[in-house]
């Protein structure tokens, strides 16, 4: 009886678990070097969620900010941060370090 119940539940479990595996968003590494972002241009697939793995390799705090993607996150000196972006429509989305507004880069979704 109990086994049968478990067997009956199995498809539901699979249905719940499957998207979790399927939707694991692609990761893109982004480093802040103090005077520039590396890479300064990031290519991502359009209409898909992407995870940015940001590493601050400078000796000062940095704030990853983007008005076009609605993101702002402070990354302490030597720290790491994860920022989920998208799904983005095809296009160019700028980002910058809010503490050094002249240092920035662009995310290109296609």
């Amino acid at each position: 009886m109990r086994t049968r119940l478990a067997l009956l539940l199995l498809p539901f479990l699979a249905a719940v678990a499957a998207p979790a595996f399927a939707a694991d968003p692609p990761e893109v590494a982004l480093a802040f070097l103090g005077d520039r972002f590396e890479p300064a241009e990031i290519q991502v697939p359009a209409n898909t969620k992407v995870t940015l793995k940001i590493e601050n390799r400078s000796s000062g705090a940095m704030e990853f900010e983007s008005k076009s993607m609605h993101r702002e996150k402070v990354v302490p000196a030597g720290g790491k941060a994860t920022v989920s972006i998208g799904p983005l429509k095809p296009g160019r989305y700028d980002f910058f370090d809010d503490f050094h507004p002249k240092i920035g880069g662009v995310v290109v979704a296609r």
Binding site: S58, S59, G60, A61, E63, A77, F99
Partner: peptide, 13 residues
């Protein structure tokens, strides 16, 4: 808190 972090960083770099 962001201002403090920024000032910490700026004095370091």
């Amino acid at each position: 808190s962001e201002t403090v972090l920024f000032l910490f960083g700026v004095t370091a770099t």
